[in-house]
């Protein structure tokens, strides 16, 4: 299973905010167990999607010089659920970015409906004597950062959402 819980960015304003989408589909195996006859996107994975949106927003501020890891979730609320066919939109706002880590505030919406909101604290993995961390073990390798191509449509042309703000 690929541990990528956002499909595409809709907005990415460096050092400020980002918006990403996650399309929920019945092709995702786990939905058949969560729950049998009542497939809903697990809250933990909605949380992961918000963290990936916010984590990339933070990581980009230092051009991915740091390895950003999810450290703590001081606040997380769920108000509803997302089902197959729903498009979750994760909006992250960078509250704090610094040498040791950072903090983001994130919401998850389906249309106008608020599904979840969270505050997420990230830590930068300390560098140990020039060793580099094996990025393979982390969620996003640089190769996958094509996810950054904001709003790119299937034919490769920038989508409407990619218009510079």
């Amino acid at each position: 299973m690929r541990w990528i819980w956002i499909d595409r960015f809709l907005e990415f304003e460096s050092g400020s905010h980002a918006k990403a989408v996650k399309n929920v589909t019945l092709a995702e195996d786990h939905l058949h167990d969560h729950f049998p006859g009542f497939p809903v996107m697990p809250g933990s994975l909605i949380m992961e999607g918000m963290a990936q949106t916010g984590g990339l927003l933070l990581g980009e501020t230092s051009q991915f010089e740091h390895v950003v890891i999810l450290a703590k979730i001081p606040k997380l609320n769920f108000y509803g659920w997302a089902c197959p066919g729903d498009t979750l939109v994760y909006s992250a706002k960078l509250l704090d970015a610094r040498e040791d880590g950072g903090v983001v505030e994130c919401t998850a919406h389906v249309g106008d409906r608020l599904v979840a909101d969270a505050e997420i604290v990230f830590a930068h993995l300390p560098k140990t004597g020039g060793e580099t961390v094996d990025q393979k073990n982390f969620v996003f390798t640089m190769k996958l950062l094509g996810v950054f191509d904001v709003g790119r449509a299937g034919d490769g042309a920038p989508g409407a959402a990619a218009a510079p703000t």
Partner: peptide, 21 residues
């Protein structure tokens, strides 16, 4: 342990100061 990082962040913000690691 991870809470110490969070606490430092919040203190910096709430008191408008810098706390070196």
């Amino acid at each position: 342990s991870i809470d110490f990082l969070d606490i430092s962040f919040r203190l910096e913000k709430n008191f408008a100061i810098k706390i070196p690691r």
